[in-house]
């Protein structure tokens, strides 16, 4: 009898936690997508909360400081870590994505402060939605510059 009481109390809390997690996940789920996948879904992806990643094309970065509107294009990079490793690491994959004109691309609009790390061949990881105009409206923008941290061989090597 005594044990039951605690068991019920614990089960109640546990159930509440599960319920919280389930509803919160449902309300806030974001779908991971690559540029290829986003293009493949096309109209079906419109207005769905998406987490998109790609390689930033440096030439396309435009920033209007008066309205804080940032636009740039990203090129497709594989979403799978193993695949990235197989193709020679993130820095290499990003470099190739930017250099390859046949890669799928998508235009991104972001309103806010221009992030410090935004530059050519950075990896942009964004959450947002695809608009009906085919432009990705990013609400959150995160950047990674793999060359910063990876075991890089010094550039002087080439001149030696």
């Amino acid at each position: 009898m005594k044990v039951n009481k605690f068991f019920i109390g614990g089960a109640f809390i546990f159930a509440a936690i599960i319920l919280l997690i389930a509803t919160s996940t449902q309300a806030n789920a974001e779908y991971f997508m690559t540029v290829d996948e986003l293009n493949a879904e096309g109209a079906a992806a419109v207005n769905k909360s998406v987490r998109l990643s790609g390689a930033v094309l440096g030439d396309t970065i435009q920033y209007d400081a008066s309205t804080l509107t940032l636009t740039f294009e990203i090129a497709h990079v594989p979403g799978d870590n193993a695949e990235i490793e197989a193709q020679g690491g993130l820095a290499m994959v990003l470099h190739e994505a930017v250099s390859d004109p046949s890669r799928a691309r998508v235009k991104v609009v972001y309103e806010g402060v221009m992030p410090d790390l935004l530059r050519n061949e950075a990896q942009a990881i964004m959450t947002g939605t695809l608009g009906e105009d085919g432009v990705f409206h990013a609400e959150e923008l995160l950047l990674k510059c793999p060359t910063k941290y990876e075991e890089a061989v010094p550039e002087q090597a080439a001149s030696n």
Partner: peptide, 18 residues
């Protein structure tokens, strides 16, 4: 088969009552 992630709103909502 599809990769889903959750952002800050998920954590805020789920941990708030706790």
């Amino acid at each position: 088969g599809t990769k889903i992630t959750v952002g800050p709103p998920y954590y805020e909502r789920a941990t708030g009552p706790l």
